[in-house]
Design a protein around this nucleic acid. Structure first.
Lengths: 114, 114
DNA sequence: CGCATCTATGCGAACTTTCGAATATACAGA
DNA sequence: TCTGTATATTCGAAAGTTCGCATAGATGCG
C-alpha cells in the first residue's frame, strides 16, 4: 500500500480525533442539522463549531447544503456511520478499561455538554 | 453520551491518526511481529517505531509479549481490524477524491491496497 | 437601503505531536 | 562478568492543533 494512501487514511482518523467532532458526527447520524443546531446542542462557541465543521468538510466527512441563511450538514458516507457504530461496540467491549482510563461514568446524565 | 467517553473515542482515533501507525496496524493484521520486524519492514528509525508503538500500547490497541530479547506485538481486538477493513472499503469508494486530495502521485500504477 | 441573523475566516497564544540524537534498560551468550 | 543485540525513554526543536476573540461575508426582512 502506497504511503500516500496511508496518509489519506491517517487524515480521516485525524479528522475524527477530537471529542467535539465525534459529538458532531454522533448528532449528524440522526439526520441533517444546521450549524446553529449543532452549536445549540453542543453549547459551544459559534466560531469553534464552525472551525470543527471546517475540518470535517475538509476531509469530506460531511456534506453541506445551504438553505437561505442556514447551512445544513449531514454525514456524507454511510460507511463512516458504520465505523462509528463499530467503535461503539469496541467501547462496550472495553468499557472497564475505558473507565480505568477515565474517571466518571454512570448512567446518570452528565451535564458537560450533551 | 458523556463527554468523557467521547474523549476516549477521540483518543483511539488520535492513536490511529498517523501514517506510520496505520502501517504498523496493517502489518500486524497479518499476525504477530517483533518491534525489529516492524522496523525493518517500514525502514524507519528504531526510536521512531518504538515511540509509535508506545502510542498504540498506551491506547491498548496492541498487545505485546516479550520473548527473550524481543517484544512481539499484535492487534489486541479484532474489532479494530474490522474498523481498518471498513476504512479500506471507504477508500476504495472514494479513491478518486482521495487522489484528488493528494498532490504527489507519479505515473506508476496504483496498487489498490490488497 | 439599513440592520439583524447565520456562518466562516484570520489571528495569536497555549498546548500537543513528531522527529532524530543520545541514552537507558533488558536479555543472551561467552 | 563483559559484549552485543533488542527495545524503550528522555530531550529539545520544529510543526501542527485548538481555542476565544474579533471580524468578514451572506442572506433575509422591513
Amino acid at each position: 500500500m502506497p504511503d500516500s494512501l496511508r496518509r489519506f487514511k491517517a487524515d480521516i482518523f485525524q479528522a475524527l480525533a477530537h471529542p467535539t467532532r465525534i459529538a458532531i458526527m454522533d448528532l449528524l447520524e440522526g439526520g441533517e442539522l444546521s450549524a446553529g443546531d449543532l452549536m445549540e446542542r453542543l453549547g459551544m462557541e459559534q466560531a469553534n463549531i464552525s472551525q470543527h465543521l471546517a475540518v470535517l468538510r475538509g476531509k469530506q466527512l460531511v456534506a453541506n447544503r445551504k438553505v437561505g441563511n442556514k447551512v445544513f450538514y449531514s454525514v456524507r458516507d454511510p460507511i463512516i456511520i458504520e465505523v462509528l457504530a463499530l467503535m461503539r461496540r469496541y467501547f462496550q467491549c472495553h468499557l472497564k478499561e475505558a473507565l480505568g482510563l477515565l474517571d466518571e461514568m454512570d448512567d446518570t446524565p452528565i451535564e458537560v455538554d450533551r
